[in-house]
Design a protein around this nucleic acid. Structure first.
Lengths: 145, 145
DNA sequence: TTTGAAACAACTTCGTT
DNA sequence: AACGAAGTTGTTTCAAA
């Protein structure tokens, strides 16, 4: 993979701030032609530096008001891949992270309300999980989005 | 705010999957004209359902290899807003969540390496924090991106 | 609210430097 | 690697239904 110079870093920053910015707008900001700008962005995508583009959606406005993190502990023999696979099969799981140490997995959840959250946590605990500890989010700061 | 129908939900899903999809492509997929499609998306943005568009960047490819979550506890009199503000001032903080119960804040961190992470955690602990517990991410599943 | 058409803007490719 | 030009495609607005 090619080295990432300051122009590339600028493009990444601009595209993180506005993923639908036009090539001509980006070109103007980084001081290159439209063609050169597109070439660099195509390269960043091909190299896997940019993994995609997405719309940021306010889940609260869609009626999913509850956000929570749950720590999950598993029986000692469970392979980490199995933990993540089990979590990925639960639709309310927004993300899951295997952890060095204790707990084994940290799961980010989205639910409509507390009753729904309780139901999700029940499903998390099925299988080889030995215990959970949940933290309900009251407020959040997010660097992007 | 207007009700969100199944066409809107489809548009949200399509834009989350590809934030740079063209209006004509989206129009074809939802079975509306380009003009009607644009109108709906403009409305979703204006209503705050769509809060923005962003490029998903693989931080590992930029040399930020370490991801961690840190639980932070504060002295009892600290207002939650102050906790989030303090966290937001640390560039390596990707997100911070105030929590009901114990701990007070859960912080998502990005660092170049373990030495850098240690330095970040030192900075987290300054101010009114009374204690931290860090969890280094080994592997992750993310529903989008 | 949707449509179709028209004017405008942006994208993408290609030959050149 | 970048540029500029040319052909293609997409965006945005507007009158009509």
């Amino acid at each position: 993979m090619e080295a990432i110079d300051s122009i590339d870093q600028n493009l990444l920053r601009l595209l993180q701030a506005d993923g639908r910015a036009t090539y001509s707008e980006l070109a103007g900001r980084v001081g290159l032609s439209v063609a050169a700008t597109k070439r660099r962005i195509d390269r960043l995508c091909a190299a896997g530096v940019i993994t995609g583009f997405t719309a940021l959606v306010d889940q609260t406005k869609l009626g999913w008001a509850v956000e929570a993190f749950t720590e999950v502990r598993y029986v000692g023999t469970t392979p980490p891949e199995d933990m993540l696979r089990a979590m990925s099969e639960i639709p309310e799981v927004a993300a899951a992270y295997t952890i060095a140490g204790d707990p084994d997995v940290l799961v980010k959840l989205r639910a409509r309300d507390n009753r729904h959250l309780q139901n999700v946590i029940e499903r998390l605990r099925r299988g080889r999980a030995t215990g959970t500890k949940s933290m309900i989010v009251l407020d959040a700061y997010r660097r992007e989005g």
